[in-house]
Every structure is written in structure tokens, then in C-alpha cells.
Amino acid sequence: MTDAAVPLTVNGHAHSVRDVPGPERLLDTLRWRLGLKGTKEGCRSGACGACVVLVDGRATLSCLTLTHDVPGAQITTIEVGPEDAAVARVRAAFAQEGALQCGYCTPGFVLTLAGLLHERGRRAAREELLEAAGGNLCRCTGYAAIVRAVERLATEDR
């Protein structure tokens, strides 16, 4: 079972990832087999959120996800193009508010918030967005600009 190739669709591109050991995390598959280094490795224990990607539209900790447990999944990473409207919205809000500094946590924040937009559509409320982003650690910004970006997301379509 484990030796079989794992089919994954990442940012719209179909992959069949071979020779994945059972314990391998989606984080490592994305980074080291598919070369998508935008997904960041932080704590590897689900505590920092740097590795969040979308799995079938839901924000997911790729460090706590076994690649073999998501065969056939649609994965979205920070490298996705503008076709993902939710990611595009979050990117625009972060750029407008300068909601990043070193940028290491940024992919996780963007995908976490984009995941909430996918879940809630345009009705995502400020509090829900902040609750979702509360699982992501940032050491640089003090979250102030990130909160401003969230407020922009929560109000821009009303």
C-alpha cells in the first residue's frame, strides 16, 4: 500500500508522487519532492501554523498530515496563481497593509485566512478570521498589520 504512488493535485497540477514512506508528512512531500518551498517548516508540531496549506479547500497543518492519508486531495499552496480568488484576496490585503516582515509565517497566514474564506465565502466575519489566524504565530509584526489586513478582508465586500 505504502509503496504505491500517491496522487495529489497541487495548485491545479496533477502529480503522482512515488516512493513515499508511510511516515512522510505532506509538508515534506510538497517541499522536497515537489520543490514547493513556499510552504514553510516551523515547529513541526502543529503549534506555529507556518506549514498550513489547503487540503480540499480546508486550512490544514501539513506537518501533522501524512501524505498517504490524503490521496487524491486538491492541495493549494502559497505558490498558487491568481485563479484562487480567496488566496488572491488575502494576498492583496496583506500587501496593502504591509502585513508581513520576515515573511516566514506569511504563507501559513495567507492559507489559513484563505481557508476560512473558502469555508465561509464572503460572509467571513472579522472574529472568525481572527480566530483562524490565532493558530498562526508571527514574531515580527506583533500582528497589528495582520489584524488590519483581516479587517480589510472582513469589510471589503460589504
Binding site: 514547493l36 502559497i78 504591509g98
Partner: peptide, 25 residues
Amino acid sequence: MTAAARPDAGLKLTGSAPYGTDLDV
């Protein structure tokens, strides 16, 4: 107050800024 967009925002918002952990030779 809104900060001006950072010059590195585009790279960092698309996963295009390679960090030390991303080096792959």
C-alpha cells in the same frame, strides 16, 4: 494608519523568497 506596501511583499506572498531552510542544491 496604513503602511506603504513593502518592496518584498510580492515575493513573500507567493512563496518566491528562498530562506535558509529552503536551500536545495
